[in-house]
Structures are given as structure tokens and as C-alpha cells.
Write a protein that binds this DNA or RNA. Sequence first.
DNA 1: ATGGACAATGTTTTT
DNA 2: CATTGTCCAT
Length: 730
Amino acid sequence: MDFLKDLNNQQKQAVTAGTGPVLVLAGPGSGKTRVLTQRIAYLIARQGVRPFNILAVTFTNKAAKEMEERVTDLLSGQTNGLTLGTFHGICARILRREADHLPVTSSYVIFDADDQVSLVKQALKDLNLDDKIHRPLSVHATISNAKNDLLGPEDFPPNTYRDEVIRRVYQRYQELLLLSNGVDFDDLLLYTARLFDENEEVRKRYARRYEHVLVDEFQDTNLAQYALVKHLASFHHNIFVVGDADQSIYRWRGADYRNVLRFEEDYPDAQLILLEQNYRSTQNILDIATAVIERNPYRTPKRLFTERGAGTKATLYEAASDQEEAQYVVEQIATFVVKKQAEPGDFAIMYRTNAQSRLLEEAFLRANLPYKIVGAQRFYGRREIKDMIAFLRLVHNPRDEVSLFRVINLPPRGIGAKTIQNLRTRAQQLGISAGELLLQLTQDVDSPTEEALGGRALNVLIGFAHLLHTWRSAAETETPLALLDRIIAETGYRDLIDDSSDEGRDRWENVLEFRRLATERQDRPLATFLEEIALVSDQDTLDKTSNAPTLLTLHAAKGLEFPNVFITGLNEGVLPHARSLEDPEEMMEERRLFYVGITRAKDRLFLLYSQTRNTYGYPDYVEPSRFLDDIPMELMNDERPQETSYGDVYLPRRAPAPQSTRWEEISTRSAPALQPEYAAGMRVHHAAWGEGLVLNSKIQDNDEILDIFFEEVGLKRVVASLAKLQVMGK
DNA sequence: ATGGACAATGTTTTT
DNA sequence: CATTGTCCAT
């Protein structure tokens, strides 16, 4: 097997670099994933390194999985024992194994973002601090940053009054986590780094094992991650990192692209390899990207080049409103698909904030065209899913107070704030957690406890305790899926959420979707299952199987590529975001974010902004993004309107968008008297308008109404019985 | 203890 | 505007 075939000189050099530290600076689309994969294969097959002795860190689980598959392909098997995963995932496993050295047990649970904020809230309450003044979200962000800088509460410098407050909240927050036998995302990194720092035996064990340490997306590591990598490579010093400072977009999460500089300082003998040739985009796209990123100060200039040729110009489009912007996206995609110039799945639509996806989704729904959206939060953040997870987490770890109090009264069984308070107080007196006390109620109840909890409340508590108890026994022998089914059945959860309204049905569908996820992971023990769902990344939810356009944030787009890319909302206040306008560092990051978006495109790039935008429900005029000024006009086709306004009169320059078909109408198209003859996806011919694609069909007033996209004349709405249509094909 | 009605308040980005 | 929290009547 020739691992070096089809590699350029720099890539070859990287793949076959000898021992010692190596720093690969890789521009977008320069094949860094390939380099990493082939290097792992090369180490195993050519250098005789055992997979067991290799550690590779990627940014998402999906990337790890893909990399593993590719290595396995290259070697036809023999990757057993290879450690491949995200920082958080790898740390979670190490902590599980080394729990003896930690303040938590091996059945600890990982608290998600919401749990973390509610814990901060609880901490503020415990300390009698006003959560109006000290906003939990912002307090948590500060704590998180401290952790990423490897600072514990005791290390947190109380320079200002606010710092003093945060230090105390941090302290209490940490106590609450431990009380629940829980860790947050940052603890995964912090605890592991600390463990290596303080326990030489453990550190040596891991450092000896990992003869080779490889890190992807190195520019987005924070201090804790940097320390981790350094510890892990502290024995063999074979550390191979790949990154691109221009693509650093996680500063707010503690990432520090200066880790690249730190690396060069810490390892002065590091080999430096530059990958500049781009295999992804056309030269026009690269030139646009370069024009944008060049405006950032303090960067090492890079020349991005390709052998793919100039390609087509980018399209710059000014929409009248953000709604129209979304409409334009859908119409453009429909045009390309109708003309058979691209597949629906070839398109990605990117935006700065998740909120922007809404209008796009609505536009797709109106056209009755399917789309897919990247984002784990959207799913795992839903109430019903959080409930399911809370039940499972509680079974796994009864000390988890956040989960306990989330579900103890689900469905309502008469346990309110008062009872919860009593339970917590009594548990505190006994020096145990509320969950442990609850479980004890299934045995026998001593009289002080009975008194503390009161007769009526006690009985319902015991009832819930018995449920929890049986679930815990079940969990010992059954799969998480079986346990989940048991919980759903025994709580009557469906009746609780499915009130047979659209929304209720929707929620139940979500539960079923979660159940499907559990089915896919049947073989996992509960601990692993919980860990996996706590650490899913947005990108992990990307579905490659369906042929539909992808909606995603610019952050989620990192590391991906698409033939055609729309970047929407190129307006001041959106990209760059309003909250980065004053801080030059943040402004630089906004620019990098735009750069990341541009460089995802292989063939076509669409840059969109609009004149007005709805914020808080009210429309407002907005300026085009300053970043657009930096792109030479000759690289773009300007689709901005010619002068069409006279004084205050604005003349629409395109045919008006079709009468909106509401989502409710689409979803409630129930048993019409007339059966539709046409369906979305059909190609039809019209005597005057030529050939077109049916986008939508509905029965209205005993007539079939069609939205058809014609190649010649665009989108039209026709009545089927009047327009003489010929069906050309499915 | 529960659920409904109103108010207030808030928007990056994510493991 | 859309979600989340708070108050009040049952």
C-alpha cells in the first residue's frame, strides 16, 4: 500500500516527518485531514507503531469517526486500540478510569449548558446574591473562562468587587457540582490536566503509552487543552499538531491561537511544514477569501493557490428584507436544481446566529422543499428530551440534584417547592444527597425524617422512590433503551406531553426520535450512552444521507465543504455581530469567521445582505457588512438593484414572491375532496411558460393550486384545471 | 400544589 | 416576537 501516492511534497513531508515535535500550518482545503489520516496509517504500517500507542485528537466525534474509517480502509483493519476522539471525549474516558484520584466517582454525570446555568443560579441563591445584578449566564461564562485558563476558585484573583463575587459563586458552584457527583464540560479538561499535573504516576502511565500524539484544529485549543497535550506528549515528545490561525473562531471559549506561538517556544526544535495548495475552491473564491482575511493585522501572510482555475464569480445580492433574502436563497437553489446544474444536497446556507435559520426554514417550508439543519442544541435542548435524559441520568447517578428536581414531579404527583426544600434540608442534616435520602425511604423511615417530610408528602415521595428504585435495578440488567421504554411507560410520559395538539404530537415525535437514537446505541452501557449524548457536537448531527440543502451556523461549518455556499446576513450588527463592534480582537474573529465561511465553497459562492432586518419583531434599516468593502468588485457579479427608487417610492425589482402558504396549511392538508394530480418534484410543460418544476401542490376551493418554477419565467402560481399542463416526468 | 394569565427581558458562536 | 419567569386564583 502506497501511503504517499497523490500527495504533494509538503503533504508528503508532513506524513513522513520523523520523530519529535511537528507543526503543520495548513490553509483551508489544503488536505490536512488527509495528512493526519495518512500519517497515522504510515506510523502503523511503516514505522511499526502499535495503534495502542497512538493518540489523535479531533474537533468533533464525527471527524474522529471518519478518520478512523479512513485509517481502517488504508490498513485494511488493524486499528484496534487506537485512541481517537475529541478532547472532551478522551478526557471523559480517562476520568472515568482514574476516578479514584478525583473528587467524583466513576459514575459521575456530565452537566450540560443548561444544568450549568441552573447550578450557578442555585449558587447565587445559596449566597443570597441577586441574580438580576449578577446574571447567571455571564457569571457562568466567567467561571468557564477561568477553568479553561486552569484557574480554580482559589486561584481566581479577586481584583474587583465583581471578581470577588464570582470567586465565591465559583466556589459554591463547584461544591454543588460535587454534591451532585457531576462535572461540567470544562471540568473534563481541567480535572484531567490537574490529574496529570499533580499525579506523576498517572501522567507517566499515559505519557509512556502515547508514543505519538496528533492534534487537529490546534488553533482552537485553550490553555487547558494545551496543557493536556503537553502532558500527554511529555515522555516521547512526538507531538504533531495541525492548525491555521486564520481559522481560529473559538476565542470566546478560551481558545487561543497563540498556542501556535507557544508551541514554537516550548518546542524550539519543532519542524515547521506549510500546506498552501488548496484542493477545494476555485481561484476566485480563494481570492475573495484572501482579500477578506488580509485585513487582519499581525498575521503571517499566506498565499492560497489552486490548480482548479478561476471559476465563476461570486454573486453579491442585496435583498430588500431578511425575508426576501431567505426567499432568494430558496429560489436560487430551485433554479439550479431545475436546470440540473446542481443537486439539492450540494448547497449549504450559512449564518452568524441560530436565530437566522428561522426565516430560511420558513422559506423552505413554503416552497415545500426539504432541508436539513445542523445543530445538536436544537434537539437536545428541547424540554421533552431534557426530561428523558434527566430520568436516565438520575437512575445512573441518584446524587444528580438538577435531574432529580427536574423529574421528581413528572407527571405532577403533588411534590412542590416546599417538599423539595424539606427533602433537601433533611438530606443536608444527614450529610447525604437528596437522591440518596429519597432511595432510603424505600427501606424504613426514622421518625425525625418522617417529621421533617410530613405525612402526606412522605407518601408521594416514597412512591417516586420506589419507581426510581426499580429503574435502578432494571438498569443493572437491561439496555438503556429498555430502561427508557420502562420510564416512558411507568411515568405515562406520552399522556403528559401529547395533548393531541400539533405541538404535543411534535413533542412526542421528538421522544420517539430520542428513542431511535437509543436504539442505535443499544450495546452501550448506560454510562457510555449518557456520556455520548452529553458530548455530541453540532456537526455530529450532520446528515449526509438525504439529498437536501444544509442550514448551519458559520461556526458549525468549520472543517466542512460544499459545492455551493450561501452566506446570509452580511450586515453590520449580524456579521460582524453587534457584540464585537467595540473590541478589535473580537472584530478580527468575526472576520476569520467570514473567512471560514467563504473557504467552505468549492464552486459557487453567494454573499447576501439585506436593507432591512427584523430585530425583536420590528423591522430596521441595517448597513451592509464592512467586510464586503474589502472584496474587489471584479470578483463578484453584483446583483444589487439598479437605481429603482424615486424619492421614497421603492419599486420591487423582481416578481413578487408567491403568496405565502402557511406551515399550518401544509401540515393540515387533511383529506381534501379532490385528489391532487400533481406533486412536488414533477416536471411539467406549460404552453406559454415552457418547462418547470412543481414545488408545491394543494387543494383549495375544489381546485388544485400549483406553485411551479419555470426555467424561463421563474416562479408562478397556477390553477391546475385552467393551465394546460403536460406532465414530463416524476 | 397546580396551572393559567400576564410581564419582563433578552440575541452570538458550542463542547 | 417568543421564550421564561412571576403572580395569583383555584
